[in-house]
């Protein structure tokens, strides 16, 4: 017998997972670098804010207010970078991970080894999914930690798109969606460029549509009277207005609460009976996160199913 065992290898990685890691080594290094840089950046922000009383949540309403927003620039930057991550993942999956393999015919090269197309796609998705979930979860946890050390009155609102995405599980879901849509687009297009293009735009579409509809994912709270006039600083304000004598809610006009007398006068002068506000209090953060995460994960599962169905229909 001439069979010779290949060179010694680390026992934890062999077979198909080994091949996925080996073939996308550059992407793996990029991901490690991205996570490392993000972690470093966030740890630096944490270190800078430690001991700075401007960031102390215990200091109510706020201690000093020189230029609070400057201090949050790193957070904004990191949030924006993290929010773009699912699009980058979609481009990688639609291009290098699947589209390029079909364009070059190297996918077929794997399928004529002792690997079924289904197992090939499953591993192609599972290995990156594992690495992306791990890294993204770590980054969001750290981001959340840094953000929550900020003063509730000054720090970027939880409802801002980049912050909302970067602080919760919804980002992990979007990253997985990018991966699944990328695989589907790559299989559909069978080309690197069109695969990554379709993956990018499909992910972007879901991203934009859900960002636009995000406030409707959980019933908003309606406040009236004094509460409406003085919403907490960390509530997302969607609509403010007044209630007329006829009982109609009219969006727009406000009555200022700063001078106690002025408020009442404002109401009587205009024949308003009350003011109202509609929005999401900070307590809606988790319901909103979980509903959106659920929707995105369901879409990702659907894309996965479609990709496997397509592959199975095409190959024997």
């Amino acid at each position: 017998m001439t069979a010779v065992a290949p060179a010694p290898r680390p026992p934890f990685l062999r077979g198909l997972p080994w091949s996925v890691v080996r073939l996308h080594r550059t992407a793996l290094w990029l991901w490690i670098a991205f996570v490392a840089a993000g972690t470093g950046w966030l740890l630096r922000a944490l270190w800078l804010s430690a001991g700075d009383e401007r960031y102390d949540p215990a200091c109510a309403p706020r201690c000093i207010d020189p230029e609070p927003f400057d201090a949050y620039i790193p957070l904004h930057l990191q949030g924006r970078v993290m929010a773009i991550l699912p699009l980058a993942v979609a481009v990688f999956a639609g291009g290098a991970l699947v589209g390029r393999e079909l364009e070059r015919g190297t996918a077929a090269l794997a399928w004529v080894q002792s690997v079924t197309p289904t197992r090939w796609l499953a591993t192609k998705l599972a290995v990156p999914a594992l690495l992306l979930t791990g890294g993204t979860t770590g980054l969001t946890l750290l981001f959340r930690r840094v953000w929550s050390t900020g003063h509730p009155e000054d720090r970027p609102g939880w409802y801002e798109n980049d912050i909302f995405l970067s602080t919760g599980p919804v980002l992990v879901a979007y990253v997985l969606l990018g991966l699944a849509l990328g695989a589907l687009a790559g299989l559909l297009m069978r080309r690197t460029l069109s695969g990554l293009g379709l993956a990018f735009f499909a992910t972007l579409l879901v991203y934009v549509l859900l960002a636009m509809g995000r406030t409707h994912l959980w019933p908003a709270t309606r406040w009236t009277g004094f509460e409406a006039a003085r919403l907490p600083g960390d509530a997302e304000r969607l609509e403010v207005g007044v209630i007329t004598a006829a009982g109609e809610s009219v969006q727009g006009p406000e009555c200022n609460l700063d001078q106690p007398g002025e408020f009442d006068q404002c109401l009587t002068n205009n024949e308003y009976t009350d003011v109202y506000a509609v929005g999401h209090p900070a307590s809606h953060y988790w319901p909103l996160q979980l509903v959106e995460t659920g929707i995105v994960l369901a879409l990702a599962a659907l894309a996965c199913w479609a990709a496997f169905a397509l592959l199975r229909r095409r190959t024997a």
Binding site: T2, A3, V4, A5, P6, R14, G15, L16, W18, S19, R22, A110, Q113, S114, V115
Partner: peptide, 13 residues
Amino acid sequence: LGAELNPGRWDQD
């Protein structure tokens, strides 16, 4: 790659 993807059937020589 051939060895990894064909466990048990690979003839390196």
